[in-house]
Design a protein around this nucleic acid. Structure first.
Length: 815
RNA sequence: GCGAGUAUGGCGAAAUCGGCAGACGCAAGGGACUUAAAAUCCCUCGGGAGCGAUCCCAUAUCGGUUCAAGUCCGAUUACUCGCACCA
């Protein structure tokens, strides 16, 4: 078959008929299949796009044939650094390159033969979209979920912008890999931490890969403990609050440590220690820049000269500062228990501080530092208590004396969303000398991104030097004011796009809540695992925030999540231009066609695993398709009965069995994204059809039925090819195979008269035998014992036990 | 260091709730058709022993539970991913 022209022909037909357009009158049968939208890159679709989109589209087509009203949209995550970096390098404006790239990618996505509903396309860089991204910001602001504060932020010196914690990988910028430093800047934040607990709990209710859920759990990092107040031994009795998960060790506190950024640090530093402490603060700030990475880094710190009082035993203990304590976690201060914490122990050894044991192992020797649960000693009235019980008792005591209470801490930080870059959605805030930060009124949205901007980085936001953009009037008092020169993190744009698709052309609102409540959640979301702690977490946060504002009424955006695996280069490492191991799908599509290439991708890999690329089998897939085409053509030309009446013989039953077995398995495999086995089952059915065709007498009508089903089962995976075969089979009145019903398995056809059993004696296989359907266990046992191969082996022995696994095996235990 | 995951022929991979390991395919070898090639069709194909029917070994390694283990339990090794001074 000439795949090129066949694909083109059908792609045009589908488009003309609007077959993939979702019709709102089908809302009650909706099935929302979504693939993560892509960044519009300069090149055409790469293998990763193909591997994500093509099989996922087959899944969507499968659901459509099952009778669902499938909604499968596509769009572009079009703002972001690469377009801007490209612009800096080449001078081509990000808007121009992005639009060009989008046009190219739309073209190849269409050639892929995927059934996207292009009428719902969204592009995040389009003012009609980012108007509503800005609207989201305003709603979060209105509900106190967006706030501005000066904060130590991650700064990429090469991209000259702030990065979110999620975008810092091993201390390096996620994009350009340069070391990230820290800076104090005034930034906008989203209060994602307000949702920490719900984001954690919600994971139990969704059908996501366990690994991804685990990653989110770790990222949120819940820990249960206690906050304890240590009063400084000074005139003000300043309260040093520490967080600990081990309040059972509180009698063993040897010193207290403040993070170098802690606000109390300078106050608690005595004059004779000031010089050393100031030097240390500076050292820590710099060290943060260079190697926060290394955990084996030696602990350092200095004494402040002050002391604090342990609230449980009144002991006077020194206050230190050390950068092994992080200001951003907990309270930024810790109580150091040298005997029962590895870090404190190391620090104490280095600076010759005392080590006080207050826990001993339940049995055996206690080697310090001992960090496990244990029995309390040297802890006054709490001596003898163990582990959790001890923590409960001490927490209760601290509460009683007003020096602490139970506390839950999360590792998750608020989401920093300001970016000092040009190519993004402007932050809709105006700064008035009198009124301060004033949100742009909703009716003034969008705050449009001007085109004529010098986007080469200067360390300041490019928009800051665009006077036409910056100057405006304060919406509150009308005085001259300035706009926020920063743009929003692109993850803000992508945190709500799945809500826009179903109502993509709404000009009055981001979406109509009534429609969204019916269309969402996304039934199946397909995309890469690399977004586990970023996009997938942000989207969940935004969904919950919008729900609490009353705009939507569901808790989770993505009911089921599937990650495709990664296709590596032929050498087994990640594809990259520098390694020169990049495989281009285009060459294969040109040679074999898009359907063939898609079918190969589905067959050659376990979808969720991926693996190194090899094209060893692509020819065989092409042959497999030829093989189907030949038998289809033969059957189409066959007279219905071939001059005989060979009906309902054992060969016909076998063929029926093969047909229904394939229906059952392929259905199950598609549902489970196990495409490789689904294709294998279709190969088996094809083989069965050939085998039957080899008979002298055959039932042409039956073969036609089987061929119809075979083509239908294959259709989601090779759509244009199967449309063509469907016509060859004589279905010219039906418009499209995708408007026919997916085959349904008839379980009765899977019941065979006889089944092959494996017969074991003492768990060793001795022979195989056919056993009729419906025999009782005793009858099976009797039949097996009479088997001519088994009987001699039982001579002179007694059968002590007989295990029958219906339809599988019989195991005789003899002695 | 902590957490999660993976490990099956020459290769890609299958294997329901613990029930015939290697489905399906690639590569390889042999054969048919052909003047020849391509295409197509048929056979063999985890390892070892034997003329043979058969027998033994085999799912990273070691041990356990079970009539029965790729699958469950414990330990070990290797690789992948995530987190990484989180108190």
């Amino acid at each position: 078959m000439d795949m090129k022209s066949v694909e083109k022909k059908w792609q045009e037909k589908w488009e003309q008929a609007g077959m993939h357009r979702f019709d709102r009158k089908d809302l009650d049968k909706k099935f929302y299949v979504l693939e993560m939208f892509s960044y519009p890159s300069a090149a055409k679709l790469h293998l990763g796009h193909w591997y994500n989109y093509a099989p996922a589209d087959s899944y969507a087509r499968f659901k459509r044939m099952q009778g669902y009203a499938v909604f499968q949209p596509m769009g572009f995550d079009a703002f972001g650094l690469p377009a801007e970096n490209y612009a800096i390098k080449t001078g081509v404006h990000p808007k121009d390159s992005t639009e060009q790239n989008i046009a190219n990618m739309e073209q190849t996505l269409r050639e892929m033969g995927a059934s996207f509903d292009w009428s719902a396309e969204v592009k995040t860089c389009d003012p009609s979209y980012y108007k509503w991204t800005q609207w989201m910001f305003l709603q979060l602001y209105k509900h106190n979920l967006a706030y501005r504060k000066e904060a130590l932020v991650n700064w990429c010196p090469s991209c000259e912008t702030v990065l979110a914690n999620e975008q810092v990988v091993n201390g390096l910028c996620e994009r350009c890999k340069s070391p990230v430093s820290r800076r104090n800047m005034t930034q906008w934040f989203f209060r994602i931490t307000d949702y920490a607990e719900e984001l954690l709990k919600g994971l139990d209710k969704i059908d996501w890969p366990e690994k991804t859920k685990q990653m989110q759990r770790n990222w949120i990092g819940k820990s249960t403990g206690c906050e304890i107040i240590f009063n400084a031994d000074n005139a003000d009795k300043d309260e040093i609050r520490v967080f600990t998960t081990r309040c059972d060790t509180v009698f063993g506190v040897n010193y207290v440590v403040l993070a170098p950024e802690h606000p109390l640090l300078r106050k608690l530093t005595t004059e004779e220690n000031r010089e050393a402490v100031e030097a240390y603060i500076e050292y820590a700030a710099k060290a943060n820049d260079i190697d926060r990475l290394s955990t084996s880094r030696e602990k350092t710190g200095v004494f402040t000269g002050s002391y604090a009082i342990n609230p449980v035993n009144g002991k006077r203990i020194p206050v230190y500062t050390a950068d092994y304590v992080l200001y951003s976690y907990g309270t930024g201060a810790v109580m150091a228990v040298s005997a029962h914490d590895e870090r404190d122990f190391e620090f104490a050894k280095k600076y010759n501080l005392p080590v006080t044991q207050v826990i001993k192992a339940k049995k055996g020797e206690t080697v310090l530092p001992y960090t496990e649960n244990g029995v309390l000693i040297n802890s006054g009235k709490f001596d003898g208590l163990y582990g959790e019980e001890a923590r409960e008792a001490i927490a209760a005591y601290l509460t009683e004396i007003g020096k602490g209470s139970k506390k839950i801490n999360y590792r998750l930080r608020d989401w920093s969303v300001s970016r000092q870059r040009y190519w993004g959605a402007p932050i809709p805030v105006i700064y008035c000398p009198d009124c301060g930060a004033v949100p742009v009124p909703e009716e003034d949205l969008p705050v449009e991104l001007p085109y004529d901007v010098e986007f080469r980085p200067t360390g300041k936001s490019p928009l800051a030097s665009h006077e036409g953009f910056m100057n405006c009037k304060c919406p509150r008092c009308g005085k001259a004011a300035r706009r926020d020169p920063d743009t929003l993190d692109t993850f803000v744009c992508s945190s709500w796009y799945y809500l826009r698709y179903p109502d993509a052309h709404n000009e009055k609102a981001p979406f109509d809540g009534k429609i969204i409540d019916k269309m969402l959640p996304v039934d199946t979301y397909v995309g890469g695992a690399e977004h586990a702690c970023m996009h997938l977490l942000y989207a969940r946060f935004l969904t919950k925030a919008l729900r609490d504002m009353g705009y939507i009424h569901f808790d989770e955006p993505f009911k089921r999540l599937v990650h495709q695996g990664v296709i590596l280069g032929p050498d087994g490492s990640r594809m990259s231009k520098t390694k020169g191991n990049v495989i281009s799908p285009d060459d294969y599509v040109k040679e074999y066609g898009a359907d063939t290439f898609r079918l190969y991708l589905m067959f050659a890999f376990s979808y969720t695993e991926g693996g190194p690329w090899s094209d060893d089998g692509i020819k065989s897939i092409s042959k497999f398709m030829d093989r189907i085409e030949r038998i289809v053509e033969k059957i189409a030309a066959m007279p219905e009965t071939n001059g005989t009446d060979a009906k309902n013989g054992s060969d016909e039953k076998e063929l029926e069995y093969a047909r229904h077995y394939a229906i059952k398995q392929v259905t199950k495999d598609f549902e489970g994204f196990s495409f490789n086995t689904a294709v294998a089952r279709l190969m088996e059915l094809t083989n069965a059809l050939y085998k039957y065709d080899g008979q002298a007498e055959k039932d042409g009508a039956l073969m036609k039925i089987v061929a119809d089903d075979l083509v239908k089962l294959l259709a989601p995976a090779a759509p244009a090819f199967c449309e063509e075969l469907w016509q060859k089979l004589g279905h010219t009145d039906d418009y499209s195979i995708f408007q026919t019903a997916y085959p349904v398995c008839d379980e009765k056809k899977l019941v065979r008269d006889e089944t092959e059993y494996a017969v074991q004696i003492n768990s060793r296989i001795k022979c195989k035998m056919m056993i009729a359907q419906g025999l009782s266990q005793d009858e099976i046992r009797a039949a097996v014992c009479e088997n001519e191969e088994i009987k001699p082996l039982l001579e002179g022995k007694t059968v002590k036990k007989c295990i029958v696994v219906p339809g599988r095996l019989v195991n005789l235990i003899v002695g």
